[in-house]
Design a binder for these strands. Structure first.
Lengths: 398, 398
DNA sequence: TCCAGAGATGAATCCACCC
DNA sequence: GGGGTGGATTCATCTCTGG
């Protein structure tokens, strides 16, 4: 079900205690108008969310939270996605409406993001508060694997308390240990590292602040079951509803904007979910350099580059990375091959210099001479790390 | 300088605008008395922190924050380490004392922790608020390496705006790109993954809520310079002061407890910092299993175990891990060697069963027969994955 | 001195194309 | 066709300028 209008009014159409899970991503407390055009410039979505002051904003949210509480079942849960500038006020509103005792978690959604020139730390997380309606709330535990540093042997051992009341692992009269029957794994943490929705992702529909489907899926999975009713009173582009549909939950979405409603309906008919390489393979799958190369790069104080066969790193000058690419000749490469890879990788970027660090020479390469054409292209061959350090100053001019 | 007493009074002894950096880890808002004994039970540190209600607590903190603001230089910074149950109230106190505009960051300190049986998400982060006294605050940018997925070639390119005002990378008449001079790296994020101080770390002095030195070092590095004055009005075991000393900052510590002051003084004379393997080598260094083994474990639905030469995993029954260790015979191991490793790894834990999955047999092992003694010890040799699946039901009884 | 709006920023990561 | 890599796109941005 999708409703258009202010959720304060629209929520009144929903029965008492009929919803299992609510996710809200309310407008932020900003003092300026936000807008963003879609990629093809066909549409402009904007928020005209200006409140006089923070307490107006708090009341605005609180009013709607009260309605949310009414429609929520006794076993229901609510997740409030917060704005960094007002999260503390929102939590106070939640405390007042749902009660301090029903606070369950402060979830940190952490991600990597393109940076900006801001003075200070790069802002790369958002907060989601998780409250329940009562102490008897639905929750599906998800377990993850143990950390590689965990001594898994030990956690199977039963424990006892010593004379001071501290627990220790128990061993029986033979010095052996007694075992517990089973371990389920590590419960899901409240810090979630989920990649930010990439600017180029197909999943993107051109709506500002669009959330990754996988974030909503996780919330829906832990806090509701199949067939349950999921409500999003500020549904925007409809990510929550798409996730709910994919997980076989019923859904109710509300938004004040006609455009948003239209977009949501279209998305529900054809839900697209990005298949993130990063999520599927893990970030380690991108690391393709062997330790030897990393070590040489460290010795010449270069920044390592992954994801590129022709360039292994860039040089550093006064701590900053400068556009002078370096390739380290691999054990399996002849000098000719190494040159070819490096030149190819540089062909569209006209670096004034490119450096090949020779690490070995085979019999048939002793007489190798660098062709004039290559020298013109700025290719410099350095014979080993020691030589590199001798030449370093001249190499770093460009 | 180290002062004993309530910091509200002791702070009055400090001159106006004389401190560069303040870090506070105030007592938490709990309704019960906290206490913890040292490892050898020789001493008991306790907090008698009970406030009637949250607003009493807020005023208690706010009073002290006002004094903090007075002693802080105009270029100074303050970091407030929060308790999860009161962080929102503390931030409101900070807003009131330092001003909303001087809010710089909400830092998330995230760590792995012993799990508990709590229903819901495992609570594994703490919040530190970072406020400055004015807009002109000290800040040392720290840059980190680029993500492995970043296209480093590209970020060296200059850009222009297209007709719609969107930026794109610029190429000149030849189709080549123009380059920017240098890149510094990725600014430090506001989510810090720092291992929790291990209960057995040398660094531990037996004081409750002790923080890792490295956490304090990072704060001190980004927000002050050498020779600056660092103040901790609730210095506890003195971690802040130790970190300040190690980084050549001057320090002032205040604590109400005589024991805490004594401990701090002792620590300052002989600062010990854990050399965490985890921190130095990164968590990937613990992953010592090759992909082949991981793949076999996946096929037999076992939980992989790192950090152990004799046990590669534990079996799973109905999704939960059970205490039946498995070893996968490696390509380089004879069956005898594999048995020896497995038995050795199991010697202190009397697992009723231990399983060796044979993956290959060499000529001289075709006639191998399991000695009776080994069978008594519960060792079962399974010849390959297919065989494992045939026997699975019987293997999983114990 | 303050505020609004223009202009500069900068790396993450998915997509699409190319061997 | 499948792995590799060049390219596109983003900002509930951030900073700076000018009135």
């Amino acid at each position: 079900m999708i409703l258009q209008g202010d959720c304060k009014l629209e929520l009144k159409k929903i029965d008492n205690e009929s919803v299992d899970l609510i996710y809200l991503d309310p407008p932020f407390f900003t003092q300026k108008k936000q807008s963003l055009k879609t990629r093809d410039n066909s549409k402009e979505y904007s928020f005209d969310d200006t409140w006089e002051n923070i307490s107006d904003y708090k009341y605005y949210i609180q009013d709607r939270l009260i309605e949310c509480k009414r429609v929520l079942k006794k076993t229901g849960n609510i997740f409030l996605h917060c704005d960094r500038s007002a999260s503390h006020h929102l939590r106070i509103a939640l405390d007042e409406v749902f009660g301090i005792d029903n606070f369950q978690s402060e979830i940190v959604w952490s991600y990597k993001r393109w940076s900006n020139a801001k003075k200070g730390l790069l802002n790369s997380h958002q907060i989601i508060f998780f409250y329940s309606k009562t102490g008897n709330f639905k929750f599906n535990n998800i377990y993850e694997g143990y950390s590689a540093t965990t001594n898994i042997d030990q956690i199977f051992q039963k424990r006892v308390r010593d004379e001071n009341g501290k627990t220790k692992y128990k061993n029986n009269e033979n010095g052996d240990f007694e075992l517990v029957a089973e371990k389920k794994g590590v419960p899901l943490s409240d810090v979630w590292e989920i990649p930010y929705l990439n600017p180029k992702a197909k999943e993107r529909v051109g709506y500002p602040t669009q959330k990754p489907i996988i974030l909503l899926e996780r919330i829906i999975e832990i806090a509701s079951n199949e067939g349950d009713v999921v409500l999003d009173p500020f549904c925007g582009s409809g990510t929550t509803l798409v996730a709910a549909k994919l997980l076989n939950r019923k859904y109710i979405g509300i938004d004040a904007s006609k455009d948003a409603i239209q977009l949501t309906k279209a998305r529900l008919e054809n839900p697209i979910k990005s298949e993130s390489q990063l999520l599927q393979n893990g970030k380690d799958s991108y690391l393709n350099q062997d330790e030897e190369v990393i070590e040489i790069l460290r010795q010449i104080n270069a920044v390592p580059v992954q994801r590129n066969k022709g360039i292994d790193g860039f040089l550093r000058l006064n701590g900053a990375m400068v556009p002078i690419p370096v390739k380290i000749q691999k054990g399996s490469e002849t000098i000719d091959e190494a040159i070819r890879y490096l030149i190819k990788a540089c062909q569209t970027n006209n670096y004034t210099k490119k450096i090949l660090l020779k690490t070995h020479s085979r019999q048939n390469q002793l007489l190798f001479e660098l062709p004039a054409q290559r020298r013109e292209e700025g290719l410099i061959i350095v014979e080993g790390i020691e030589k590199f350090h001798q030449m370093e100053e001249s190499l770093l001019t460009f």
